[in-house]
Write a protein that binds this DNA or RNA. Structure first.
Lengths: 409, 409
DNA sequence: GCGCAATAGTTCAGCCGTACAACAAAACGC
DNA sequence: GCGTTTTGTTGTACGGCTGAACTATTGCGC
């Protein structure tokens, strides 16, 4: 709709979030979304009548919409269960399992992998390869990832499921469109468009919808599967320290998708020099390599090794981790003052170290967060398990399916 | 819609941003918004046909919608101007002036006031009273503000205009609902609900829609009147240092509306003590009182006095301001790394000091912002004039009118 | 000066999706 | 076993958008 007006000089109005023109079928799309959300976010399987009551639509309308979702394989009907009550028994509605799946992909410093989730949240396929990818060749690594993904796709399609799309997690700066990786220092990658390189395809040859995102941000989304408030800050502690900001169950990406770079918050301008050029960056206190080295371990050692030392009461390890915790707390307090969140989820390496850093971080944040007197900040370890970004990526694909069911029915 | 389901244990689905049930009149509302946005955000007055082309609606539909907006006093028709072209001349559509007005209110440390803006952006009424409100009595001050507002309302209603609502700017922590002031240290106010206290009413006695917001955040919105990118960070330098985050022309408030508290970002942990309890907060380097004291002036002096000293080459003033600029740059670099914006607008006292701090801030930010190599950060002075929060508040009211025209036609 | 082409805006039948009300289905309770 | 209750479905009414035909008003060529 270029709207090349020749009458008045230039009349190309920007269309804000209201989106585009609403027609009759827009009603359908919106109400389908509403009904899908009602089924997917309910705490107990609702009936058509429940959905009608909750959404404000009539039972008649809800019925036709639910029928469409059932036909499209997004929603399933459980066998009607007779309630302890007069009246025709209700048909409970639940997300349909083994029908539509989302793919989570990840390339990180020490592994690459694929995970397929269905709408119930079950893992229906998974492939993981470990090994150092430090300073690796993107073409070669993405080819290996494509092979893994193709295996997973073949597996789920053989079982009669449809693949809705994929999200690729990378440890670096990715633009908000999900197309371009600007730089991933720890992989040694830069200026790259991984999507055409991957060229993922379904069994019938059609190109899959693939988007790239930052690893910490997708890992943050994995937390939404558990018992977490709608808004929180997720901090992923690895070689780098990244963060994902979730507001009202949605990622806040900032102008270009580059927010959450907490690793280079300056904790102390007179501190140690950082690879980024500045001094006293958080990464120099709470990055994985610093924690390992400070504990007298090689940087290739696993975090478990630090935990062993901490358990044994090793003074160097205890000092290093405590110092890292204080620095992390200071940086997080700044974060809380600037973006305002009341829950901080510590992920990545910090999960295993939580017993030692948790209270340190919480103490410093409580002390420095301006709003703490009115609303204390909750600091907790991440609940999603290993390779959280795989789960988060797959969930994000499925979220987009539920958010626009009209495209899948 | 409580949805007290008695069938299944609990089925109260959360309804996400999709909102509530969409009916026929929802289409009307959405398309009215679309058409209103097309008229209000066009660079040149569009015709009905232009709006149709830009929105994707048919000319028939646009016609009925525009007629409704004209009848409601939101849009006006200019006399048809014969273009240099065959065909019936178009009727240019413009925002209707002197019809609907928004009210901006503010109570700050050194003044209180009201400003009324119409949809064109013209100031149609204004009342300002200066004087120190440090440690003032909220009841008394709000009563004075109510009197000023009543005068302004009477004035615009006498001229046949309707008041759509008001926004009250306060220098403190305000919740996201816009109801409760948690604390405003420099006023000495705390735990307050100013809206019922103000109890603003239109001439016919109906209660006006009033919301409270942080002063820096409303001032940020005032910038949208000028030539500013859709996403930016606005920093208001006063006694305290606050910020407003604007993403895609909308305020980002954070979980509870308490974000942007940049004044208490720790610039140097070994720096001077701050009233908040921590050490080395930005406010202790770049707050107005510190800049005045550092220049050898009383804290009651105006910022102009510092400018005079700077012009005269006063060494103490130059040092103090330069030090403040460096601290501000460091804090802003952190901000940029955490929330990702590419434009920083310096407002409040920093406008007058811009000639001395601008390049210092820009230099430090450029040096420390992680994304700077890919996309340089633009630092600029605020364009909105004095009492920007008044303009921003009034504009915010009018934005809500244009965003939901169905309520006003 | 007049007819033709071009553009703006309006009118009206048709379609689509929702509401409303009546109805069919399937349980409970006395 | 029959009324009551609740679920889910069927059919009609209504509102809002589309598309095509129509009117209004200009410029241009002859």
């Amino acid at each position: 709709m270029p709207a090349i007006s020749t009458t008045t000089p230039a009349a190309a109005p920007r269309v804000p979030d209201g989106g585009s023109a609403s027609r009759q079928h827009t009603l359908r799309e919106r109400n389908l979304r509403l009904v899908a959300a009602a089924v997917f976010e309910a705490t107990a399987p609702p009936s058509r009548a429940d959905v009608a009551a909750a959404s404000g639509l009539t039972r008649a309308t809800v019925s036709t919409l639910v029928d469409r979702l059932v036909a499209g394989g997004l929603v399933a009907e459980l066998p009607p269960v007779a309630a302890q009550r007069a009246g025709r028994p209700a048909v409970p509605l639940v997300p349909a399992g083994r029908s539509v799946v989302g793919l989570g992909l990840e390339v990180n410093v020490d592994y690459l992998g694929v995970r397929a989730l269905d709408l119930v949240g079950d893992v229906v396929a998974e492939r993981v390869e470990t090994g150092s990818l430090h300073d690796s060749d993107p073409r070669e690594v993405l080819a290996r990832l494509r092979a893994l993904a193709a295996e997973a796709i073949a597996e789920v399609e053989a079982a009669g499921m449809r693949v809705a799309g994929a999200r690729l997690a990378l440890p670096g700066l990715v633009d908000a469109r999900g197309a371009r990786l600007e730089v991933a220092p720890n992989l040694g990658w830069s200026s790259l468009e991984p999507v055409p390189e991957l060229d993922l395809r379904a069994g019938d040859g059609r190109a899959l919808d693939v988007e790239v995102a930052n690893e910490a941000k997708l890992a943050a989304l994995a937390e939404l599967a558990g018992d977490v408030p709608p808004s929180f800050l997720y901090v992923s502690g690895d070689v780098g320290v990244g963060a994902g900001i979730v507001v009202d169950r949605q990622l806040f990406l900032g102008e270009r998708g580059w927010n959450g770079e907490i690793g280079h918050v300056v904790v102390d301008p007179s501190g140690p020099r950082c690879s980024c050029g500045a001094s006293g960056c958080l990464e120099q206190y709470a990055g994985k390599e610093v924690l390992l080295r400070g504990s007298g371990l090689p940087t290739s050692a696993p975090v478990d090794a630090v935990v062993d030392l901490l358990r044994a009461g090793d003074v160097a390890a205890l000092d290093t981790v405590r110092r890292g915790g204080r620095a992390l707390g200071a940086a997080l307090a700044t974060f809380v003052n600037l973006v305002d969140v009341s829950t901080i989820v510590l992920g990545g390496a910090y999960v295993e170290l939580y017993g030692w850093v948790g209270h340190v971080v919480a103490g410093v944040v409580e002390e420095r967060a301006l709003a703490a007197p009115f609303a204390p900040v909750d600091v907790r370890p991440a609940a999603a398990g290993k390779h959280a970004a795989l789960t988060g990526g797959a969930r994000e694909v499925l979220r987009s399916v539920v958010a626009d069911p009209a495209r899948w029915v």
